[in-house]
């Protein structure tokens, strides 16, 4: 793990939404934390382009994501 990515997630309205988004992000990252207020953070490998995160399947429908910040661990 080499990068920490902060996301803004749109479209979540309940805890089930949070769980759904968290589950989707865990397919490519670890230490995933998603809040109902629209913030999410996760760690990803160096070889995964963080700007591809909003293109994940979980964001292909109701939910949308925007990369806020990328931090090198």
């Amino acid at each position: 793990m080499a990068k920490k990515v902060l996301l803004r997630v749109y479209g979540m309205t309940c805890d089930d939404c949070v769980a759904h988004v968290k589950n989707g992000l865990e397919k490519i990252g670890k230490n995933v934390d998603v809040s109902l207020d629209g913030n999410a953070v996760l760690d990803i490998d160096n070889d995964f382009d963080p700007y591809k995160i909003p293109s994940l399947d979980v964001f292909n429908g109701r939910y949308k994501a925007q990369v806020k910040e990328i931090k090198d661990d």
Binding site: Y10, I53, P54, S55, L56, F59, N60, K64, A65, Q66
Partner: peptide
Amino acid sequence: AVENILGFD
């Protein structure tokens, strides 16, 4: 531009 910010291609 907006769609690409939000993960479209």
